[in-house]
Amino acid sequence: MDFTLKIWRQENRKAKGRFETYKISNISPDCSFLEMLDILNESLVDKLSHPVCFDNDCREGICGMCGLYINGHPHGPDSAVTTCQLHMRKFSDGETITIEPWRAKPFPIIRDLIVDRTALDKIIQEGGYVSATTGGVPDGNAILISKHKADEAMDSASCIGCGACVAACKNASAMLFVSAKVSQLALLPQGKPEAAIRVQNMVAKMDDLGFGNCTNTYACEAECPKQIKRSNIARMNREFICAKVASEESTKR
């Protein structure tokens, strides 16, 4: 298969970026998107020019490192996959593919297609933890949790923090990410002690970092590689209202 690639190139955070066009040919339909970029980079290195920088790590769809905005879709046109799990057979032969980095104020570009997603880590630091007692190892099933709740918490916990929700959202809102992180703990008894302050702190941090506001458009849900549901956002709103109304703990700024 042959493709024309339009790729965003930017030297560093402050440099002015531009699109560059590359032609690539003889790509197998079974080649993954990142492998295709590897092939492009090899040819670029052969010509002694700088390869295209992009984030990647596990290449099996579980780490959340890769993330490219491909032809108007975060993680490309396939559904429920990360960029590394996207294959070239999803494109038609001779297609022009435009590749852009995640665009959001809290995600500054490091180089080319790599963005700095530390903002998501900062939100986690605000409340993505539970208190644990010291001492002996507790019995595994000492706390009873219903299957339904456990399943829901597991679904929320499957968020890999890739930032596709932010990239997809027309407002660059991180609500789906934050709500998944709030939900996975709010659903379980282990998360209850910090529940009221957690949601307030994480939302406050999200706002401080400059993410947009949710307008319930659900582009995040449509593009999430882990199929995190919009009901998480409703749950976070519910948690937030309950915390504001019922709890005397509030975020210290």
Partner: peptide, 25 residues
């Protein structure tokens, strides 16, 4: 605020399928 959260816009307009009305409130 939402507009300011994405200072550099995408070149390719989003192709994500979302409820039509929700985008133009």
């Amino acid at each position: 605020e939402n507009f300011m959260a994405r200072p550099v816009r995408y070149k390719v307009r989003t192709k994500t399928k979302t409820p039509f009305m929700s985008r133009y409130m």
